[in-house]
């Protein structure tokens, strides 16, 4: 593991209008680590995740203070190209959201828009992305079939392939398995472990067993604060704070 830091988040505050959603959050995300964010609904974990690639910028009447430094660069600096940022930091949503196009076109969409590859190179990039997303063997016979004809689990892996096709550094996942059955969930979890070799992953999940299974570090959010952030094993065996223990053991309050 390299000593270099992927994300350095300092004193991060975020507001929806007058409502403060994040309070003084500090976190360090290391390269090729999986960081899980847990906490009750409305605790700020998804808001935090969306700050990491400025997806919250699309919401009106929001404010942010503090800093998020990605590989040495403050992502909220005025000169930042948001499209390039979102190429570097991809987001996989809760529900699979493929475009109503073919499998191939879904994965090729990003590289085409960004001008990353064309022709045979593009074809090769699509194949590689589908392989990396562990979907290739299931769909290789017909890349022209509509993406929406795939099962939900396959669609979610397609969405991951779509993110991989633009060669990101970081993959953000916002409850990526909440719409999936246990088998599809297992496939995504195994995939996350494989992706860890090349990518830094931050995942929001309501499923604490999932956080325990897939992540290296876990952050517990509550009322917009990052209450505790530590090795996942520590969080689930001997958390430092009673509030964390109450939450992970299901005795919140």
């Amino acid at each position: 593991m390299s000593d270099e830091i992927t994300f350095q988040i300092e004193q991060l505050n975020f507001y929806y209008g007058n409502t403060q959603a994040l309070c003084d959050v500090n976190m360090t995300v290391l390269p090729r680590e999986i960081t899980a964010l847990i906490g009750p609904s409305g605790c700020g974990k998804s808001t935090f995740l969306r700050c990491l690639n400025r997806m919250n910028d699309t919401i009106t009447d929001t404010r942010i203070s503090g800093s998020i430094v990605l590989n040495g660069q403050n992502i909220y600096a005025p000169n930042i190209d948001e499209t390039e940022l979102r190429r570097q930091v991809g987001l996989v949503f809760q529900r699979p959201n493929p475009f109503p196009q073919s499998i191939f076109d879904n994965v090729a969409f990003g590289p085409r828009v960004l001008g990353i590859a064309t022709g045979n190179d593009l074809h090769e990039l699509v194949v590689q992305s589908l392989r990396a997303a562990a979907l290739w063997d299931e769909i290789k016979e017909d890349l022209k079939q509509p993406a929406l004809s795939l099962s939900l689990g396959q669609q979610q892996r397609l969405c991951i392939a779509r993110v991989l096709a633009v060669t990101p550094d970081v993959i953000l996942m916002d409850e990526p398995c909440s719409a999936l059955d246990p088998i599809a969930t297992n496939q995504i979890e195994e995939l996350i472990q494989e992706l860890k070799e090349h990518y830094t992953i931050v995942i929001v999940t309501h499923n604490m067993q999932q956080a325990a299974r897939v992540s290296d570090k876990t952050g517990f959010f509550w009322l917009g604060e990052l209450i505790e952030f530590d090795e996942t094993t520590t969080i689930f065996t001997r958390p430092s704070l009673q509030r964390t223990e109450d939450y992970v053991t299901g005795r919140f309050g």
Binding site: M208, Q209, A212, I235, F236, T237, R238, P239, T244, E245, V248, T249
Partner: peptide, 9 residues
């Protein structure tokens, strides 16, 4: 019950 933390210990 999938206990964790103090319950698991």
């Amino acid at each position: 019950q999938q206990p964790v933390a103090v319950d698991l210990r």
